[in-house]
Amino acid sequence: MIDAVLSILAGLLILAGSLFAAVAAFGMLRLPDLYTRMHAASKAGSVGSGMALMALALVSHSGPEALRAIAAIAFFLLTAPLSAHLLAKAAYAVGYRMWPGSVLDEMPKLAVTTRQSDTPGSDRPGPERPAPDRRAPAAPERREGD
């Protein structure tokens, strides 16, 4: 009895999870720019795989297996927002623009502050800055070093 109910529940969960994944992939194909695509992929995609793992935890017969599936869900829910945030921040700092229909851009200063950190290649000119501005003072310094 309990097994039957659990497997029906698991079937519903994997169906809903794969629907979420398919909708996320469809949104990734159709949405206009990187940031909206990221909103589809990271949220709906992680919910989809989390639901499938939860169904696996429901139908597994021993405790450790269910616990491993739940640990995988926890791990995935921890890492998916982190990687999406890092990717969005890197793309924004480098200067990939939003879709022109975007209503609000709350951090216009990020490009400058990130460029002056210790990232490799931070001596390169920023996206808004024209290239010769920083090369002109940099060139004599290199000659003095020689």
Partner: peptide, 26 residues
């Protein structure tokens, strides 16, 4: 069109693969 789009696609691909693995495990 851009590199971040492709990276995002790879990220999504791993999450779909995890869902696939769970369904095949069931």
């Amino acid at each position: 069109p851009t590199l971040p789009d492709r990276v995002l696609g790879l990220d999504m691909l791993t999450s779909v693969a995890i869902g696939f693995i769970a369904v095949i495990g069931i």
